[in-house]
Each structure stands twice: as structure tokens, then as C-alpha cells.
Design a protein around this nucleic acid. Structure first.
Length: 564
DNA sequence: GCCGTTTTCGGCCCGACTGTTTTCAGTCG
């Protein structure tokens, strides 16, 4: 996705937030947010394409974006940044705390950060604050804890975008360049990004001058560390060309994986470092990463498996699974259009799915329970008719008409069975009542699994990386129900969701659950998010047999029938 | 601020939940 779009969208989102905090008109706030969302999901790069063409962008926003592209900000944003203390914005990051309360806390109590709020609540200073009863204060403390847990890391979507931007910006100055570290291992939370390059040290000056660099932390001939405007730490290391493979191996990690490899080398009387695999002064392997593994007598271990969790022993016995690859996916079973909260038309989404070479593709817009999406049965059926018409243009792509149902507090869904029978595939997801206790939440999920029309539980934990923690459920019980009923668990590839998380994927697989790796796309470029879901699945050692949307249509069709 | 088989003004995604209130404000999806 074009980085310029993300940056302009982030600026508009910030402006919307500041505008709301200063008591601005709610409809204008929504306009800024809507434009931000549309720009972020726009398929073309707005640094070259006219931003006025983006739906939801009129003259006023276009002017702001144009100024932003020229100098990294716009006048009205600068003014509001002056007006609103950072502390007030920090407070609104806390789940359950909106602009009104944030302003009140700052103005009346001088509270300007989540830790300051926690302190104020614990000290009893807010016991008489209006609108903040005991329950609210308890919930806010919980929200502050959730926020603290996820701070200092970004999700893989942001980190990957930064890494690719860095590589693009330096490519003409280097002989070779790639990213390593936890990003190459496809972790869903990334603390810093490691980039390796073969280049002349003069590239460091070029790097320091890039527009994404907010602060230079250290800079030498071999290593430069900077902080980006997103707050992400970025390390660029120069390595000798002849040690490229060893350096990639070493800096990809994980630490635990590397310790096991070095121990193996030592037992053979060798030495493994970031410069190569050596026997005395003789180089056994160094330039090529795969050769290091083979000289150690190991199968090649794909980076997402390198966690020191048994992969080295398995590689020694030649028992590593053939993990799923992006090319194994035959389709996508969860996507949205502008009929509900997506930003692209049905035909545009379908056209991109066809380009991706899929055998099948499901459109799953929201059902009526999410009232704000204004879905009706008539609209859903009209969309189905439109999809059937589009089918004629795409003989190789089977178009499936699905829906994303809302699982209500008791485990019920939006439509009765006779209506659900009309759909080819039903995803069912939790969108509210996140704070239910474990028993209620578990019953809720099990009821959804037992619904004969529900095929896939969408983004099961509902976590949003950096924003909201997972719901609490007895996952073993849920997974047993899913396996028993033939209900798949989704691996939602939307990078801030990355949901199921990898440890739960492993647990679910242990119980015999199948998975669907979906994009949950709300825009055309989002269809490519599946690469993140595949990375997550690789980390859990999933094979094509575990993932229903790698299956040929006839096999998938049987699964979707849930034995009925 | 955007948009127009409602076209240059007057709408704009609407309802539920929570905790606080004593009739409702704030937040969320």
C-alpha cells in the first residue's frame, strides 16, 4: 500500500481527533475520518494520482492533503496541535475513555497521561469526579493496563511498510539489501526493524537523511539506528558480501534458535557467527543462508519457524512440516464492499480477486445487527444478484455470496436459518460485549459453533494490536466445539488483528480445528493482507490440510455443508 | 466538510450499552 496514502490518512485522523477534542462539529469529524479511511484504502498512490478523485475527498480536504504532501503538515493541523495538550490525546487511547472525559480530566484535575490517571484513581483524587463512579474508575484502570501491555510495539503491517520503504529508498545505493529480525520471522508485534545491506559506508549518510527518520540514535560505519516518525526503531547494518547468508541467519534469530544452532556447531568442533560457519580458519558456509543449515546437517528452516520450539530437532530428523505458502491459498472467505463498511465496489473487489488467481472468493458484508451498516435482506439479495451477474465475466473464479454475522451476547446471529441457507458461506464474529466473563463468553462462542449455518468464527479474540486486548474465553472448550461441529477458526490477516494469535492457533490445531486464512479486506489493497495471515500460520506450523481455503472447491464445499 | 435519480441546502450510519443519573451523557461499533 502506498506509504504517502498512509501518512496523509494518519494526518487526517489526527486532525479529526483534535477537531473533536476541541468541540468541533461531529459531522465534520466524520468527514475527516471518512476521507482518511478512503485515502488509506485507495488503490493508487496519492503522491502521483489526484487526491480529489478519492471518494469522500472534496476541495477542502484536498487542499489540506496537498499542503501535507509538500511539507508534512497543514496549517489547521499545526494550529490544533498547539491548542490541544498531548496529554489529552494520550488519554483518549484508553479504551472506554473518550474526548469529553479526557478534556474534563485534564482541565479539572491536571491529568495528562494514562499513568497519571491510574495514580489519580488509586489515590482517591477522582472519587468525587462527576460522571466517574466506582465502576467506571475500575474499568479505566483495566483499560490502562491493556494499553500498557501493547505499548512500544507496532503491528506487522506498519513494520513491513516501513521496511519496504527503507529498502526502496536505499536500493540504488547498495549492492544488496533485505530485512531480517522478528519481521522476517513474521511476528505480529514488532519492536524494531533490522535491515541488512552490502554497501559502502557512505550509504549511512543517505539513510540518516531520509524523510521517515525522526531521530538518529547512533550512527557509525557498520550500524546506524534511528527512530521513525511512527516511533519504530530501525537498525541498518552493513555486512560483508561474503558473509551475507550468515548475517541474515544471525540477525533473523530468534535468539533461542541461534543458540541451538551454535551448540550444534560447537559439538562438531565448528564455530557459527554472523560471519559464517567455520572449521578453524576454513569457511564451511557464509554467503548462502541455506548452505549453513545444510552443512549443519539440517533441513532448511523457514524463518517463521525459528523460535527455538523444537524446529531444530525436527529439522535434524528431516521431519519439518511442509508449511503453507501464500501460493497455496485458493481463495479468500472474508471481505467487505462499500455496501457496508468497505470503501471499494463489489466489482473492484472481485476484479482484484480474479487478478490474484483465486479459484473462489467470498464477499461477506455485515448483516443487520450492526445497525450502523444499514444492511437489509433486500440489499443482501440485490448484492447476490449483482454477484451472479459478475460471475459471467470471471469463468475461472467461483464467486461466493457470504455474510459476516454478528454473534450477539447470547450466541445468536442476525438472520434465521432459512435466510442463512441462501448464503454460500457464513462468517460469524463478536463485535460488542467484549467484557463478558469467561463462562458467558465461552457459551456464546460454543453456541455460534453449534449453529449449523455458521462456517467460520471471524477474528475470534477481537483483539486490536495497540488498542484493545483479547476477550476472555475458555478457548479449549471453544476449540473442542469448533472441531466437533466442523466450524473453522479464522486467521484474520488484517495486520492489527492477526487473530487468532499464534499460540491459540497451535492450541486449536491440537484439538483438530481447521482454519480459514482471510484478508477481512475493506479495500482493494487489503486483499494482499493474506501474506500476514500466512506468516502467522507458518509460525504455528500449519500445513495445507489445516487450512480450508487451500482446498479444492469440492472439498471446501463439503466442509461448508457442516455434515448437513 | 462532503454530497446530489433529494442537486447548491440540508441532510449526513443508528442504536445499544454502561454507569450514572433521576432523565441522560458518553462511548462504541
Amino acid at each position: 500500500m502506498p506509504r504517502a496514502n498512509d501518512e496523509a490518512a494518519a494526518a487526517l485522523d489526527e486532525y479529526a481527533e483534535l477537531f473533536a477534542l476541541t468541540g468541533g462539529d461531529a459531522f465534520r469529524v466524520r468527514s475527516y475520518q471518512k476521507a482518511a479511511k478512503a485515502i488509506r484504502g485507495y488503490a493508487r498512490d496519492i503522491s502521483t494520482a489526484p487526491v480529489r478523485d478519492v471518494p469522500g475527498v472534496g476541495q477542502a480536504i484536498a487542499t489540506k492533503v496537498t499542503e501535507f504532501m509538500e511539507r508534512g503538515s497543514f496549517r489547521q493541523l499545526d494550529e490544533l496541535r498547539q491548542q490541544v495538550p498531548d496529554g489529552v490525546r494520550r488519554l483518549t487511547r484508553i479504551p472506554g475513555l473518550g474526548p469529553k472525559t479526557a478534556v474534563m480530566l485534564f482541565e479539572e484535575y491536571g491529568v495528562d497521561s494514562p499513568p497519571a490517571l491510574a495514580e489519580a484513581i488509586r489515590s482517591g483524587r477522582l472519587d468525587r469526579a462527576k460522571g466517574l463512579g466506582e465502576k467506571t474508575r475500575t474499568n479505566l484502570l483495566k483499560g490502562i493496563d491493556e494499553l500498557a501491555e501493547v505499548q512500544g510495539q507496532v503491528h506487522i503491517g506498519i513494520a513491513m511498510g516501513v521496511a519496504e520503504e527503507v529498502i526502496d529508498s536505499l536500493r540504488e545505493h547498495v549492492e544488496r539489501i533485505d530485512y531480517a529480525g522478528s519481521l522476517r520471522r513474521m511476528k505480529d508485534h514488532i519492536g524494531d526493524v533490522d535491515i541488512l545491506a552490502v554497501a559502502d559506508p557512505s550509504v549511512m549518510a543517505v539513510f540518516r537523511d531520509q524523510h521517515y527518520v525522526a531521530e538518529v540514535l547512533v550512527s557509525g560505519e557498520k550500524k546506524t539506528s534511528v527512530r521513525t516518525v511512527e516511533g519504530l526503531q530501525l537498525d541498518l547494518r552493513l555486512v560483508p558480501a561474503e558473509s551475507w547468508g550468515a548475517a541474515m541467519q544471525y540477525f533473523t534469530g530468534s535468539k533461542e534458535h541461534n543458540v541451538e544452532l551454535r551448540e550444534m556447531a560447537v559439538k562438531k568442533g565448528w564455530k557459527l557467527s554472523e560471519y559464517g560457519l567455520f572449521s578453524g580458519d576454513t569457511v564451511l558456509a557464509a554467503a548462502d543462508e541455506a548452505e549453513i543449515y545444510s552443512r549443519l546437517g539440517l533441513q532448511y528452516v523457514p524463518p517463521p519457524l525459528r523460535e527455538g520450539s523444537g524446529e531444530v530437532a525436527a529439522a535434524r530428523r528431516e521431519e519439518l512440516p511442509t508449511v503453507i505458502e501464500r501460493e497455496d491459498l485458493r481463495g479468500d472467505l472474508h471481505s467487505h464492499t462499500d455496501l457496508t463498511d468497505g470503501v471499494a465496489s463489489l466489482s473492484d473487489m472481485v476484479a482484484r480477486a480474479a487478478e490474484l488467481g483465486y479459484s473462489y472468493f467470498a464477499v461477506t458484508d455485515h448483516a443487520p445487527d450492526l445497525v450502523m451498516q444499514r444492511m437489509t435482506l433486500e440489499k443482501a439479495r440485490a448484492q447476490r444478484d449483482q454477484l451472479r451477474e459478475l460471475q459471467a465475466d470471471h469463468p475461472k473464479l467461483r464467486l461466493l455470496h457470504g455474510t459476516e454475522l454478528n454473534i450477539d451476547a447470547d450466541g445468536g446471529v442476525d438472520w434465521p436459518a432459512e435466510i442463512l441457507d441462501e448464503f454460500d458461506v457464513c462468517v460469524a464474529s463478536v463485535h460488542s460485549h467484549f467484557n463478558q466473563d469467561r463462562d458467558a463468553m465461552t457459551r456464546r462462542f460454543i453456541a455460534a459453533c453449534e449453529n449449523p449455518n455458521v462456517n467460520i468464527i471471524g477474528h475470534p479474540t477481537t483483539r486490536k494490536i495497540g488498542k484493545r486486548g483479547p476477550v476472555d474465553a475458555d478457548w479449549e472448550a471453544v476449540f473442542q466445539a469448533a472441531a466437533r461441529t466442523g466450524t473453522a477458526m479464522e486467521i484474520d490477516s488484517y495486520p492489527d488483528r492477526s487473530d487468532l494469535p499464534v499460540d491459540l492457533v497451535r492450541l486449536a490445531r491440537h484439538h483438530g480445528v481447521r482454519f480459514s486464512i482471510d484478508s477481512d479486506a475493506h479495500a482493494v489493497p487489503h486483499l494482499d493482507f493474506q501474506r500476514f495471515g500466512v506468516g502467522l500460520a507458518q509460525r504455528a506450523w500449519l500445513t495445507t490440510d489445516d487450512v480450508i481455503n487451500t482446498w479444492p472447491w469440492q472439498r471446501l464445499k463439503k466442509f461448508l455443508a457442516k455434515g448437513g
